[in-house]
Simulated scan of single mutants.
Amino acid sequence: MMGGPADLVPLAPAVLPDGIAARFVDTGNGLRVHLLEAGAGADRPLLLLLHGFPELAYSWRKIMMPLAAAGYHVVAPDQCGYGRTTGWDGADPANFRMLRLVRDVIGLVSALGHHRAAAVIGHDFGAPVAAWCALLRPDLFPALVLMSAPFAGPPSLAANPAAAAAELDAALAALTPPRKHYQYYYSSPAAAAEMDAPAAGLAAFLRAYYHMKSADWPGNRPTRLATWAAAELARMPRYYIMDREASMPATVAAALPSPAEIAACRWLSEPELAVYAGEFARTGFRGGLQWYHCASFGIGREEMQIFAGRAITAKTLFIAGAADWGVYQAPGSFERMQETACSDFRGAHLIAGAGHWVQQEQPEAVVAILQSFLG
């Protein structure tokens, strides 16, 4: 699947908060990037907001206007493989390797008429992209904010992710009951087909997925994990360490909130959910899943290993929800981020009342932290 028809129009103003506009930008490397922006102007410092999976530029809608009001040109792109950005080829995982994604971001800075960004801010899988932007080009990205996904540094020269993933998969399969890691599942051929056409429908699947990873779901009580041992990882909820034969839609179906819970959800209304469902109904999930394929099987890893041992010198902040297992899902990464991976680390904030979707669940708290950090 390609990134969609070239005649796509920007996201309709009716679904966006007042002051946020949508448009397309050509980054010069084949992508026609669909983005949301507020406070437009090359004379204003640029803030780049990079979403994760399964999300969109739309995921930043609740914090864009307050940041624009503080004087910034705030830009959130649909990243390669997502939304209304076109020009990507979902059949070739090499299009989604990390340094290619960094090139996309650098091209966007230039296309917007800026010489650098005041900060790059990444959430979920957008966090490692933001981290690599700051690692490779601190002149362009002097400040970095990571959300929900700690960055432990570049891979070592001895790293063999494909072998490590296969070894972990075998160990999880030997548990009772047999389990599998969600990233290994996301890297499998079955994942896209199962997620593109869930039995309950796409909107219900996404509602259950977003709910189960939020602070609204009572099963989220994250704690540090000691090691990468299979039994230790299996302490996480099943949306991380899945039952062996289950799909992701089947895994989260049991957590589908009741109509009363949906009506009470202040951070994701039914019209907002409909934006996500409409976009993924058109694109499918394959583009986003290819990011996981690259990570699990080491596509692009050799070029990343060139930077083994190098630390991020940009000033760095970490933000996550206190109910987010993403902070601890990779044992040791939260600590390495603070101790070795970032030489100018300015603090980690775990926000009460938020799970994985921290900038949507607690936008006011996120904005206050960002404004203090950015000065």
Rank of each mutant, 00 (worst) to 15 (best):
M1W: 07
G3P: 05
A6E: 12
V9E: 09
L11D: 02
A12C: 11
A14Y: 05
A14T: 12
V15P: 01
L16T: 04
L16E: 08
P17G: 09
D18A: 14
R23E: 15
V25W: 00
L31A: 07
L31M: 14
R32H: 11
E37H: 14
A42N: 03
L46Q: 06
E55A: 12
E55C: 08
Y58C: 07
Y58D: 05
Y58M: 09
Y58H: 10
R61D: 02
P66Q: 11
A76W: 11
P77D: 02
Q79N: 12
G81H: 11
G83C: 03
G87A: 01
A91D: 15
D92I: 13
P93T: 13
A94I: 11
R100I: 14
R103F: 00
V105G: 00
I106F: 15
I106L: 15
G107S: 03
L108D: 03
G113D: 02
R116C: 13
A118N: 07
A118V: 03
A119S: 12
A131K: 01
L135P: 00
P138H: 13
L140G: 02
F141I: 01
A143W: 09
L146Q: 00
A152Y: 03
A152S: 14
P155I: 07
L157H: 08
L157W: 04
A159H: 11
N160V: 13
A162I: 00
A163H: 09
A166E: 14
D169V: 01
L172T: 04
P178S: 08
Y184Q: 13
Y185L: 06
Y185S: 04
Y186C: 12
P189Q: 04
G201F: 04
A208M: 02
M212C: 14
K213I: 14
A215T: 11
W217T: 02
W217M: 03
G219K: 05
G219M: 09
T223F: 00
L225F: 02
T227H: 05
Y240P: 00
M242E: 08
D243T: 06
R244E: 12
S247A: 12
T251F: 11
V252N: 10
A253S: 10
A254W: 00
L256A: 10
S258Y: 01
A260M: 05
A264G: 09
A264P: 02
R266H: 15
W267N: 12
E270S: 09
E272C: 08
L273P: 04
A274Y: 10
A274L: 09
A277E: 06
G278W: 14
E279F: 01
Y292L: 06
Q305P: 01
A308S: 15
T313A: 10
A314S: 15
K315L: 05
A320L: 08
G321Y: 04
P331G: 15
P331S: 13
S333F: 13
E339A: 11
E339D: 14
S343N: 05
D344A: 10
H349A: 13
A352T: 05
A354H: 08
A354R: 09
G355E: 13
V358H: 00
Q360M: 15
Q360L: 15
Q362I: 05
P363D: 06
V366R: 00
A368H: 10
A368T: 13
F373C: 07
L374F: 08
L374D: 06
